[in-house]
Design a protein around this nucleic acid. Structure first.
Length: 504
RNA sequence: GCGCAGGUAGCUCAGCGGUAGAGCAGUUGGCUUUUAACCAAUUGGUCCUGGGUUCGAAUCCCAGUCUGCGUACCA
């Protein structure tokens, strides 16, 4: 504790003429803050303080505000409005902010001196009593101040925050401290994930964790990331999907399982693709794709109602103009793949020769590369002309079997028991009646591997199926894209805290 | 990979051949109910990097780099 003559000296220090060399380069801004840090130490204050026990949070205090309540809160100082002998400031965190008020007469001499060394961005604890100002602002009148942590670097602009996309993504902490709308997205995302888990738990699903490091990356068509285990001296890949392991659990006797975690695909990065992304996969024994479709419909509507308060999701541009409304009202449209393609490419599209189909693609402006199989040509038309123009939910059924080797083939033969859910111009969720015939599965995976350079067949998986997998419905949901759709985020980078960027 | 746009003070941005600018933040002074607080004064720059054109380049040209958007690749 400082004695009073010491305090007097420090006070007089504060009335000295400006320190020489107090400029505004980044270096200088840091130097000024370091000087304050030193002054705090002189005052006997630890600038990187210890445990502090608030009675509530700034956000909760403001939400259930009433006057005359003793309270203790902690938070970062976001703004200071200094009026001489009294000071207003904003204190809080990503979940909420409230105004603090201090008056030189209302706090101890030491606390006043400590306050003089608080900068924007510092963390402090305050104890005091709530009141409402003349302008109606819920506030806390500070009676005592506890310094918690010094920010040695300046805050982003208090009004604009960080706007530069690169800085937002590379230094997400600056984005979060300066842009509440950005923080809100990640708070909402976190709560959505919790809600998805609770939705599945309430339906008796068990959450499981299967390997992310896999010997043979399977369960999807994508190039994997390669890595190496030193002790085992063996190459490993990061998983591209948990599917094959989750099915092993069905064979093992689990009847309802899900996994909600990261997949990794070594492919291009775009507005819709991040190399690591979050995927939900859920499997239900004795179910089929139609049952899974209903569950997805129910789940997504539940999330929309809970987090958006409506089934009509508005997407806005930078000027806050509504550019699109996605209507999630049930029941969702169901349409078959061929009919959708015929709708854009003509009723005779499947009756003409493959060559004529290619010519038709030219006409439609759909680009086709030379090596493409006929079904891939059709798929291009589907993606460019149907998928990208479908914003309201649509379950696409009777998908060609070549596209989905892990699903049951329909009795007819050419298509599979699958839905592909399209919302917001993107595939959000596929759902299958899972293929459980090991012989058919072997055939189809081998056929696929034959055509693909880096695709390997997971024979252990096939052996597992030979022990008997119950018929099952399965779904995958691309969580990032789902969150984008629900929150109206134009790019996947806005819903992933630390998106992958090139090294600078 | 290709095309287009962008990179200027700590942050948000203007300037687009002729002395590098504003707001916020910082510093100093004033102010006891303010709130993008206010008033007055003031500091702060490898104009992304490297070449070139020019009497003169943040500005024009070329190359590179990072970011964004589009496109291609990716069952």
């Amino acid at each position: 504790m400082a004695d009073s003559s010491y305090l007097a000296r420090l006070m007089s220090d504060n009335t000295q003429p400006p320190a020489e060399g107090s400029h505004s380069t980044e270096e200088d801004l840091i130097a000024v803050r370091r000087e304050k840090l030193a002054k705090l130490r002189e005052l006997g204050v630890d600038p990187f303080g210890a445990k502090f026990t608030p009675t509530t949070t700034p956000g909760k205090l403001k939400a259930d505000f009433s006057d005359g309540v003793k309270t203790t809160i902690a938070g970062r100082v976001y703004a200071i409005r200094d009026m001489g002998k009294s000071v207003f400031f904003t204190i809080g965190d990503v979940e909420g902010r409230i105004q603090g008020y201090l008056n030189q007469k209302g706090i101890s001499e030491t606390d006043w001196l400590v306050w003089k060394n608080v900068d924007l961005g510092d963390w402090v604890g305050i104890a005091g009593e709530t009141f409402t100002t003349g302008k109606g602002e819920p506030s806390v009148k500070v009676e005592s101040l506890t310094f918690l942590s010094k920010a040695l670097r300046p805050m982003p602009d208090k009004w604009h925050g960080v706007h530069d996309r690169e800085t937002k993504y590379r230094k997400r902490h600056l984005d979060l401290m300066g842009n509440q709308d950005s923080a809100d997205i990640f708070i909402a995302r976190s709560r959505m994930l919790a809600e998805i888990r609770s939705f599945l738990h309430s339906r008796d699903y068990l959450e499981v964790e299967t390997p992310m490091l896999q010997d043979v990356a399977g369960g999807a068509a994508a190039r994997p990331f390669k890595t190496h285990h030193n002790a085992l001296n063996m190459p490993l890949t990061l998983r591209i999907a948990p599917e094959l392991y989750l099915k092993r659990l069905l064979v093992g006797g689990f009847t309802k399982v899900f996994e909600l975690n990261r997949n990794f695909r070594n492919e291009g990065i775009s507005r819709r693709h991040n190399p690591e992304f979050t995927m939900l996969e859920a499997y239900q024994a004795y179910g089929d794709f139609e049952q899974m479709a209903e569950m997805v419909e129910e789940m997504v509507c539940h999330l929309a109602e809970k987090f958006c308060g409506t089934l009509k999701i508005e997407h806005k541009d930078e000027n806050d103009e509504v550019i699109r409304t996605i209507d999630l009202s049930r029941p969702w449209k169901r349409a078959n793949y061929h009919d959708l393609v015929k709708g854009v490419a003509g009723d005779d599209f499947f009756d003409i020769t493959p060559e004529a189909r290619r010519a038709k693609c030219d006409e439609l402006g759909v680009q086709i590369s030379d090596g493409m199989e006929d079904y891939e040509v059709v798929q291009q038309v589907f993606e460019k002309k149907v998928e990208e123009h479908t914003f309201n939910p649509c379950f696409v059924t009777r998908v060609p079997s070549e596209l989905v080797p892990l699903a049951k083939v329909t009795p007819g033969g050419k298509t599979v028991e699958v839905y592909e859910l399209i919302i917001n111009g993107q595939e959000i969720s596929p759902g299958y009646s899972e293929l459980n015939d090991p012989d058919v599965q072997r055939q189809r995976l081998e056929h696929q591997a034959g055509g693909e350079e880096e695709q390997l067949v997971d024979y252990e998986f096939i052996e597992t199926l030979e022990h008997g997998m119950p018929p099952a419905g399965g779904i995958g949901i691309g969580i990032d894209r789902l969150v984008m759709m629900l929150l109206g985020a134009p790019t996947i980078r806005d819903v992933i805290l630390f998106p992958q960027l090139k090294r600078k």
